[in-house]
Every structure is written in C-alpha cells, then in structure tokens.
Amino acid sequence: MPSFDELRKIAGCLLLVPTLALLSGCTSIGAGSLTRDRLDYGEALASSWKEQMLLNVVKLRYADTPMFLEVSSVIGSYQLQSQLNLIGTFSSGLTPNLPDTWGRGATLGAAALYTDRPTISYTPLQGDKFTRSLLRPIQPAALFQLVQAGYPVDLIFQLTTRAINGIYNRSSRPMSTRRADPEFYPLLDALRRIQLSEAIGLRLERRGPDEVSLITLRGSKLTPEVAEDIRLMRTALGIQPEASELALTFAAVPRNSRELAMLTRSILEVLIELGAGVEVPGKDVEEGRTAATPPPDPEEGARDQPLVRIHSGSKVPTDAFVAARYQNHWFWIENRDFRSKSIFSFLLLLTSLAETGVAPQAPVLTVPAN
C-alpha cells in the first residue's frame, strides 16, 4: 500500500497532465480557420452569384423585376471555451481511535463550448449604382481590352454589341426582334481570324484632357488569307483602304471613314437577350405568364441559336452547372454544356466592365477568433 506522500505526488501528477495539455492547446484558431473560411465562403459567394444571375435572367423572360443583392461584407466570429476539473481526496486512516484504513475519492469534470457566429451584410443594387452597373452601355474600349486579353472577338461582339458602323446585330428581345444584317456574321468571322493572326490591336493615347482609344491594323507580313479578311472588314465597315489607325467611339454610325463606331449593349440588355432564349413550360405560354418563343426560321444558322441554353422542368436537375427555382419550375444550365457554362460565367466579367467611376470595394471577410 503506497504511503500518503506517494499518493499526494500521484495526485499532483494527475492534475499536471491535463493542465499541460490545455496550455499546449492554447494556440490561435483564427490562423487555422483561414484556409477553410476563404475557400468555403468563396465557393458560397460564387454559387450564390450564379444562382442569382440565372434567376434574374429567368425573371426577365417572364417580364418580372430583376433584383441584385451584393455581399458587402462577411464577418465570422469564433469562440472556443474549455474547462477541465479534477478533484481528489485521500486519507491515511491514522487518526487516533479510528481504524487504520485508507479512503480514496476522485472527481473528473470537463466542459467545452464552440460558437460560430457569421454576420453577412447585403447591399441592394439600386440608384446610381444600378444605373452604372446595369443600364449604362459597356464602353467599347473595355470590350477591345478583352479582345487583347485573348477572349474571342466574335463572341464578345455578338453578345454585347447592337451595331458596328451601322451594321446591326440580331436581337431576340420581345419588343424589338430583328434579324442580323447580312454583313454582320461574316464580319464576326473575319474579325476572329484577324484576331488569331495578331493583326489587330488597341492603343490608348492621351490627347489633352481626354484619353483616346485607337484600333491599330497591321498591314505588313500578312498571309493572303488574313489580308483578304482585312479587306473584307474595311469594305463592310466603310474604312479607308490605307487607314492603319481607327478612332474607337460609342455611336451607331461613324463620322468619317477613319472611325470605328460601336453601339454597345448594357448588362440589362445582355440579360434580356439571353432570357429570350430560355426554354419555358408550354403551360406558362398558354396561360399568358410569358411570351412564346418565336418558331425557328429555316434560314437561321448556327449563330442565330441561343448563346446560353437554359432548360426548364418540374423536378430538380441531377447534374446542373447552376439551377434556380421560379414559379414552381426549375431552370438550369447543363453541366455538360461547356459553351453555355463559359458564356454564362463570362457575364461576371462583363458586369465588372460595366461598372464606371469609383470602383466598389470587394466583399471583406473579417474573422475575429476568441
């Protein structure tokens, strides 16, 4: 039987072990949560943006009012509390007139509390910000910057322009449906081939208080095919044969033969155009909830087809890139439709380009850890 002093030492060791364990665990939980929070909140923000964008495209198809809520801040607060109690009693039984017996007793208790209180702030898109982001046409120079970055010029112009030097694009909007001018699609094909040959570029110059955007055309070291495409472009747009620089401006028609006038769409117009191609239930058309999709024209080609295919159904899609529910129906983009996915994701970049003036602050993620 151990002595009283030995038992006291054992009890002291038992109390020391959990104490050291708690001290070793007193490290910051904020650093450890950084990777998890950044990825989780980033993925949640991206998914919610896609669903909101798809829902607004569908709502415009039904002549409903779109609503955009921006996430202005994300504040995550963590709190971790722990407590460990160890109580032991020992007696030697050496008290006079009492039996020589040993009494032993021990109580072990532990408690822990973990709290996660995220605070997310939303800002509705309205007023001047709504006008800048959705109603104001995209600047032509911003579109050519995308071209310089390698994005396909034919896709950009088909999605975002109404006219180039008076040559009009197709429109599927219910109130202003029209076919593309005969020269528009061949012009897009020629511009794409010229882009791939690196024969077209953008230069920004400061002329007095204004910054002027110039389109440059390389005239030497061209293959016969690219030279023919440039000639076709000059002829269609009414550009002088010897012009190597074109002033880029926002307008329906150019002022002279050395100007490239682009009548661009706003983000809201782009969304309406995409919404016109949404597949809707036939019952909704019969009941007057939305307009009927125009019947296919035998003369329409591949470029007349919807840029983004949005399907509809009564059940939740099983393999969707993005899905949203509206008026008891599901609308989605197929995960295997790479073209539709790419163009739909491209809308986020276009939304940023449409923003002018002071750039808004990105969502701030603040994670205090207690």
Rank of each mutant, 00 (worst) to 15 (best):
R8W: 13
R8K: 11
K9F: 10
I10P: 05
L15C: 14
L16W: 06
L20N: 05
A21Q: 10
G25N: 13
C26W: 14
G30L: 08
G30N: 07
S33D: 14
R38P: 08
D40M: 10
Y41K: 05
G42T: 09
L45K: 03
A46M: 05
S47V: 06
K50E: 14
K50L: 13
M53N: 12
M53D: 11
L55R: 15
Y62P: 06
P66L: 06
M67V: 14
S73V: 09
S73F: 05
V74K: 07
S77A: 10
L80Q: 11
Q83W: 12
L84M: 08
L86G: 10
G88T: 11
P96W: 00
P96R: 03
N97Y: 13
R104Y: 15
G105Y: 08
G109L: 01
A110L: 12
T115L: 04
R117H: 10
S121R: 12
T123E: 10
P124Q: 06
K129R: 08
T131F: 13
I138C: 06
A141Q: 11
L143T: 02
L143W: 01
Q148F: 11
P152N: 09
V153I: 05
V153T: 02
I156Q: 07
F157D: 06
Q158F: 11
G166C: 00
G166S: 01
Y168T: 15
M175P: 09
S176Q: 14
R178P: 02
A180G: 01
E183F: 04
D189Y: 12
L191S: 02
R192L: 14
I194H: 04
I194S: 13
I194P: 03
Q195R: 03
L196N: 07
I200K: 00
E205W: 13
R206Y: 03
G208M: 06
T216E: 04
P224R: 07
E225V: 12
M233V: 11
T235W: 08
A236T: 12
I239S: 02
Q240M: 10
P241G: 08
E242D: 14
S244V: 14
E245M: 07
L246Q: 03
A247D: 06
L248V: 00
L248K: 00
L248Q: 01
T249W: 08
A251G: 00
N256P: 05
R258V: 13
E259P: 13
T264K: 04
S266A: 08
I267R: 03
I267P: 00
L268F: 05
L268R: 05
E269N: 08
V270K: 06
L271P: 09
I272F: 09
E273D: 04
A276N: 05
V280W: 01
D284P: 07
D284Q: 08
D284W: 12
R289M: 14
T290A: 07
A292T: 04
T293L: 14
P296I: 02
Q305K: 15
R309Q: 02
G313Y: 04
T318C: 08
T318K: 14
R325Y: 05
Y326Q: 02
Y326V: 03
Q327M: 07
H329M: 06
H329I: 04
W332C: 03
R336Q: 14
D337Y: 03
R339E: 15
S340P: 01
S340A: 01
I343R: 03
L350T: 02
L350D: 00
L353H: 06
G357R: 05
A359K: 09
P360M: 05
V364R: 13
L365H: 03
V367S: 14
N370K: 13
